[in-house]
Amino acid sequence: MSGPIKDLSKLCIHTITTKPWSIEEAAEQYQKAGVKGISVWRNYLEGRNIVQTGEMLKNHGLKAVALVRGGFFPATTLGKRQLAITDNKKAVDEAAAVGAEMVVLVCGADPGQPLEVSRAQIQEGIEAVLPHAIENKVKLAIEPLHPMYADTRSAINTMAQANDMAEAINSDFVGVAADVYHLWWDPNLEAEIKRCGAHGNLLAFHICDWLSPTTDFLNDRGLMGEGCINIPLIRSWVEEAGFTGFNEVEIFSDRLWAGDQNEFLDKIVESYYHC
């Protein structure tokens, strides 16, 4: 098991984690706290000059790690699937403009059709967006989600499924985003992380914790160390697999959003040191 992290050089925070802050407020406060990376959710760019926003992040010493989120490819109608492809190309443009090297894909699902059909549509959607992503030098990171989200949020629910798809597409611009909240339960996780690393496909590592008991399966995530996920162990697996990127804190929490965000940020940094 890896020991405690001694610095913040690989700490990235998603803008959704400190949801009440604008991206300008987040950039200012992350810089003050010593955070070096920021993953930008698309809604934080609405109404802004995206290129100028990217420059603002750089001026605060922040690396734009990822744009979140693309995906949601499956649908029972061709028209909706085409709209999703168009929106994902727009997400690629936004990522390039803000200076992010990847778009995280929450791949989607449609409860009106079998999961196998949704998975095939996800692969077709990624392949349709891929030439535009390559042209803009933006990678596409498939994020497997916990099976409880298989109805509408994602038909990709394990690292094995994400690995299968990334390997089938076989592009340097397609890989996997591993989130401990969605994957910690998987008995094959260590082997699938190693497999992902062996193919050079591990693009992102997201961290938070699973509270027990949990009060909401979407918006009750915990700070690292508050729950039952062995984050240091999983982190050791991703590092052994060759991952050298940022540790991205992605927390959805009505409880934590309701509090003082500066105090919350202090707790993020403290828990990051320990986990």
Rank of each mutant, 00 (worst) to 15 (best):
Pro4Tyr: 13
Lys6Ser: 14
Lys6Met: 15
Leu8Ala: 03
Ser9Ile: 03
Lys10Met: 02
His14Gly: 14
Trp21Ile: 05
Ser22Leu: 09
Ser22Glu: 07
Glu25Phe: 03
Tyr30Ser: 02
Tyr30Phe: 15
Val35His: 04
Lys36His: 12
Gly37Leu: 06
Ser39Tyr: 02
Val40Lys: 05
Trp41Ile: 10
Arg42Thr: 15
Tyr44Gln: 07
Gly47Cys: 11
Gly47Glu: 09
Asn49Val: 09
Asn49Arg: 08
Gln52Cys: 09
Gln52Phe: 07
Thr53Asn: 08
Met56Gly: 10
Lys63Trp: 05
Lys63Val: 13
Ala64Asn: 03
Ala64Phe: 00
Ala64Trp: 00
Val65Trp: 02
Leu67Val: 01
Leu67Glu: 00
Val68Ala: 11
Arg69Leu: 11
Arg69Val: 14
Phe72Ala: 13
Pro74Phe: 10
Gly79Pro: 02
Gly79Ser: 14
Lys80Trp: 11
Gln82Val: 07
Leu83Arg: 14
Ile85Ser: 08
Asp87Lys: 15
Lys89Leu: 13
Ala91His: 03
Ala95Met: 07
Ala96Gly: 12
Val98Trp: 04
Val98Ser: 08
Ala100Gln: 01
Val104Tyr: 01
Val106Ser: 08
Cys107Gln: 00
Gly108Val: 04
Ala109Cys: 10
Ala109Ser: 15
Ala120Pro: 06
Gln121Trp: 05
Glu127Arg: 10
Glu127Lys: 10
Ala128Met: 10
Ala128Trp: 08
His132Pro: 05
Ala133Cys: 06
Glu135Thr: 11
Lys137Pro: 08
Lys139Leu: 01
Glu143Thr: 10
Glu143Trp: 09
Glu143Pro: 07
Thr152Pro: 02
Ser154Gly: 01
Ala155Gln: 00
Ala162Tyr: 10
Glu167Ser: 13
Ser171Arg: 01
Ser171Pro: 01
Phe173Lys: 00
Phe173Ile: 03
Val174Gly: 00
Gly175Arg: 05
Val176Ile: 09
Val180Tyr: 00
Val180Asp: 02
Tyr181Ile: 11
Asp186Arg: 10
Asp186His: 11
Pro187Asn: 09
Pro187Met: 06
Leu189Glu: 06
Ile193Gln: 03
Arg195His: 13
Gly200Ile: 14
Leu202Lys: 05
Ala204His: 12
His206Trp: 07
Ile207Cys: 05
Ser212Phe: 12
Asp216Lys: 10
Phe217Ala: 13
Asn219Trp: 14
Asp220Gly: 10
Arg221Thr: 15
Met224Arg: 03
Met224Gly: 06
Gly227Gln: 07
Arg235Ala: 06
Ser236Asp: 11
Trp237Gly: 03
Asn247His: 04
Val249Ile: 14
Val249Pro: 02
Ile251Ser: 06
Phe252Tyr: 13
Asp254Cys: 08
Arg255Gln: 08
Ala258Leu: 05
Gln261Ser: 04
Gln261Asn: 02
Asn262Asp: 12
Glu263Tyr: 11
Asp266Ala: 15
Lys267Arg: 15
Ile268Glu: 00
